[in-house]
Simulated scan of single mutants.
Amino acid sequence: MTLSPPFHPGSPEPAGTRFTLDFTATDDLDESTQRWTTYWDVERLCRGPEPAPGWVVADRAAVDTELGVLKTGKEADVFLLERAVPGTPGVVMAAKRYRSPEHRTFHRSATYTEGRRMRSTRSTRALEKGTRFGREVAAGQWASSEWEALRELWLAGVPVPYPVQIDGTEILMELVVDPESPDLAPAPRLAATRPDPERLRSYVEQVRDLLGALARRGIAHGDLSPYNVLAAGERLVVIDLPQVVDIVANPTGTDFLLRDCRNMATWFTRRGLAVDAEDLFAEVLAQAY
């Protein structure tokens, strides 16, 4: 805004329009709930695929603010985190953080990772012995595995949350919301929904497509159930991907795929739409070879 008439230092303040400077200081953060954005602190391959969606906040002046816990688990907790430039609208993301060695118990069987290889023999031995260092390696291994799966599947068009970045054992990703809720609340797990017959049929076809898309890439989810599929209105989104299984290199890979099919078929059948797990398995497995 320009002052009129022109104002010069030392002269009386003119009557009329006054200029007020309004700003927000960003030097002082509440260290208990805030931090400067870490988006540019990580390497390029630790940021999400390009082009990034328009909602991703990449401004170096952005601040990350903790909003609370979304979900707790044995291996990782998921928090709500807002990233915004002070004074402007931001975006709320899901921050998945794998637990520290003192506060977690990794219960995932080593059979998930058969067929995977680690470069460091020291890390391999530590994992096998279950030492503190081994548990730290395990946390990093699961976080890295989930990050790579999210990137690969997002680029392939599979319905997963967009992965924003990974920093150590923290993954920031898209917060999947329910577009049919008045306040765009986080999408519920499929297990918590009661879809009508038409939507139930749509969900079955989406699950078929999802399982097939994974199989064509030579992998199975490994722990698929209605508890790690989100119902975002008419659309299903799969989450919790650290244990993806190579169904070719892993000797028990097809067993995991069969279990995934049975878990989903059982849920649909209980909701009133019969799905034969063996037929679903055969249909999906045929796409893997």
Rank of each mutant, 00 (worst) to 15 (best):
V91C: 11
V91G: 00
V92E: 00
M93N: 05
A94G: 01
A94Y: 00
A94R: 01
A94W: 02
A94E: 02
A95C: 06
A95S: 06
K96Y: 03
K96N: 03
R97D: 00
R97V: 14
R97F: 01
Y98V: 10
Y98D: 05
Y98S: 04
R99L: 15
S100P: 10
S100N: 11
P101D: 06
P101K: 07
E102A: 15
E102T: 14
H103K: 14
H103T: 15
H103V: 10
H103Y: 13
T105E: 13
T105D: 13
T105G: 09
T105K: 12
F106H: 13
F106P: 10
F106V: 14
F106R: 06
H107E: 14
R108T: 15
R108Q: 14
R108M: 14
S109M: 07
S109E: 12
S109P: 08
A110Q: 15
A110K: 12
T111K: 14
T111R: 15
T111N: 14
T111E: 15
Y112G: 03
T113G: 10
E114H: 11
E114M: 15
E114Q: 15
E114T: 12
E114F: 10
G115E: 10
G115Q: 10
G115D: 09
G115V: 11
G115F: 12
G115Y: 08
G115N: 09
R116E: 14
R117T: 15
R117G: 01
R117Y: 09
M118D: 09
M118C: 08
R119T: 11
R119G: 13
S120N: 08
S120P: 07
T121W: 08
T121G: 03
R122C: 04
S123W: 09
T124D: 06
R125C: 03
A126C: 03
A126Y: 02
A126I: 01
A126K: 01
A126W: 04
L127S: 02
E128Y: 03
E128P: 00
E128L: 11
K129T: 08
G130L: 03
G130T: 01
G130N: 01
G130A: 01
G130Q: 03
G130I: 01
G130F: 00
T131S: 12
T131N: 01
R132M: 04
R132Y: 04
R132G: 00
F133I: 00
F133H: 09
F133S: 07
G134R: 02
G134D: 02
G134A: 04
R135Y: 00
R135N: 09
R135W: 02
E136G: 08
E136M: 11
E136S: 07
E136H: 04
E136Q: 11
V137T: 08
V137K: 01
V137H: 01
A138N: 10
A138S: 07
A139Y: 02
G140S: 04
G140R: 12
G140C: 05
G140F: 05
G140H: 13
Q141Y: 11
W142K: 10
W142G: 00
W142S: 12
W142A: 11
A143N: 06
A143H: 05
A143R: 07
S144M: 05
S144I: 00
S144R: 13
S145N: 08
E146R: 10
E146T: 08
E146M: 09
W147Q: 07
W147S: 04
W147E: 05
W147L: 07
W147M: 06
E148F: 03
E148H: 10
E148V: 07
A149F: 04
A149M: 05
A149V: 02
A149N: 06
